[in-house]
């Protein structure tokens, strides 16, 4: 049986790396005695994959993993067992069954929503105007810094889908993520800084939270565990 789980990674656990997170889950599955499946070869490991890595320093309130099991288990029981053995700061919300025809998380989750704790040079009174001006820009050019490669210019405009002011200094942006166009959450801030002549200041990574990962289809957003985006037929054995 293949399952997909939605979970959160919060508080100080924002400081553990993707690899460390994977090991933490693997050991949790073992502690919970889940009937996991192993890969072949000299270095067998639990067959298990995760959604787009979070950068070190960022919490994620709606993250996902896929896991293969040797036998069927009740979702509730599984959820309780996993949560019982997870360290504080990790928590599974929901588990659904998926089929082996479903694409991997990293292949289908193409949109992410971030919450920013903004910082401004002056007063924060015109948040609403700043954000709507920004979203109406036809072109949002910024420099992308690339490791071991030359910097290059990219246009963020087509990859920023939405944005809103939640509170004066709490903003949200929904942006493209993954292989078909990736916006780094801090690039939005850099672009804002440029467009607002420095009114929006850069912020540390810890002031940004990933609050959702979605499959974007025809302009609509679905969670990767939503029936709409999963293959209908799930085998019963």
């Amino acid at each position: 049986m293949l399952i997909r789980a939605e979970y959160e990674k919060r508080d100080e656990l924002k400081y553990i790396s993707h690899l460390e997170l994977m090991n933490t889950f693997r050991r949790t599955f073992r502690r919970a005695k889940l009937p996991v499946k192993y890969s072949q070869g000299y270095n067998p490991h639990i067959i298990f994959s995760m959604s787009q890595p979070l950068p070190v320093g960022m919490v994620g309130y709606s993250e996902y993993f896929d896991l293969e099991l040797k036998e069927k288990l009740s979702f509730n029981l599984m959820k309780n067992e996993i949560n019982k053995f997870l360290p504080e700061g990790l928590n599974v919300f929901e588990i659904v069954e998926i089929s082996d025809k479903d694409k991997s998380l990293q292949a289908i989750a193409n949109t992410a929503r971030y919450e920013y704790e903004m910082s401004f040079k002056n007063d924060k009174s015109n948040s609403a105007k700043m954000i709507s001006d920004f979203l109406n820009e036809d072109e949002i050019e910024i420099t992308r810094y690339r490791r071991k490669k030359d910097d290059r210019m990219i246009d963020l405009a087509p990859m920023i889908y939405d944005g809103q002011v939640v509170e004066d200094n709490i903003w949200e942006f929904t942006i493209s993520t993954g292989s078909s166009g990736n916006v780094r959450p801090q690039e939005v801030i850099r672009a804002l800084k440029l467009k607002t002549d420095g009114e929006v200041k850069e912020i540390p990574l810890v002031n940004i939270k990933r609050i959702g990962l979605y499959v974007r289809r025809d302009g609509k957003l679905f969670k990767p565990i939503h029936r709409e985006v999963l293959k209908k037929e799930v085998s019963e054995d």
Partner: peptide
């Protein structure tokens, strides 16, 4: 100092919170 741990190498050295702590 929690928020500034992002500035140091291997911040997970200082967070504790291990399973079985």
């Amino acid at each position: 100092i929690s928020d500034r741990l992002i500035e140091v190498t291997n911040p997970e050295r200082y967070i504790g919170n291990e399973y079985n702590i």
